[in-house]
């Protein structure tokens, strides 16, 4: 019984060997190319199974951004840290392009006005400003301490580990948490 189960997984999902796979990023066309043994795919998209709690693990590689259907899945990389440096960077880029919520790296100011909090932040993708309502309904604690923030427009932002932010950022966060 057990064995059959594992077999079916292997039939549908291939775990890619990090030693034999490589990725390249085309800066002009914003495309990531994957090469595995002799096969190559242009314009793959990469989706981690846990986009919030662990972006570098169980990354699914799809043939294009068209679908997340299982049959379009070329394979799965268990831990992208095992890739060589160039591939790691390219794949990270691809993950960044498919997990679009900016990661907040620094909070300059959170200003409170009539039940609304205005945030001025620095993220891994540039500086941003946004507003949220009552924290209870706009800030969510993800399992491992990470914060997911939804703003008034329904856009998402992400703080992987609030305790690792600098002192001022943590101070700004106080009225939120």
């Amino acid at each position: 019984m057990e064995e059959g189960f594992v077999e079916t997984i292997n039939d549908t999902v291939v775990f890619l060997d990090p030693k034999r796979v490589s990725f390249e990023f085309n800066e002009k066309l914003f495309l990531v190319k994957m090469t595995y043994e002799n096969e190559s795919y242009d314009g793959i998209s990469a989706l981690p199974a846990f986009p919030l709690s662990s972006r570098s693990e169980f990354v699914h590689i799809y043939k294009g951004a068209d679908s997340t259907k299982l049959k379009e899945c070329v394979g799965l990389i268990e831990d992208i840290n095992e890739l060589n440096e160039g591939s790691f960077d390219a794949l990270s880029k691809s993950i960044q392009m498919s997990c679009m919520m900016p990661t907040i790296t620094k909070i300059n100011l959170i200003y409170d006005e009539y039940y609304n909090f205005h945030w001025t932040v620095e993220t891994d993708r540039g500086n941003l400003e946004f507003s949220i309502g009552t924290p209870r309904r706009y800030v969510f604690r993800v399992s491992n301490g990470a914060l997911l923030i939804k703003d008034l427009k329904d856009d998402y932002y992400y703080i992987p580990d609030p305790t690792k932010l600098d002192a001022n950022s943590r101070k700004q966060l106080l009225p939120i948490l």
């Binding site: 066309l29 914003f30 951004a65 392009m97 498919s98 679009m100 919520m101 427009k153 998402y156």
Partner: peptide, 29 residues
């Protein structure tokens, strides 16, 4: 021309002359 939802946003994919390109990204909202 079609849109595909990603995590926290989405992408517009354009196909012309048998070339597919991801040309535009938009936030979730």
């Amino acid at each position: 021309v079609r849109s595909q939802a990603l995590k926290g946003g989405g992408v517009i994919i354009v196909e012309s002359n048998d070339v597919k390109q991801e040309v535009f990204r938009y936030p979730n909202s």
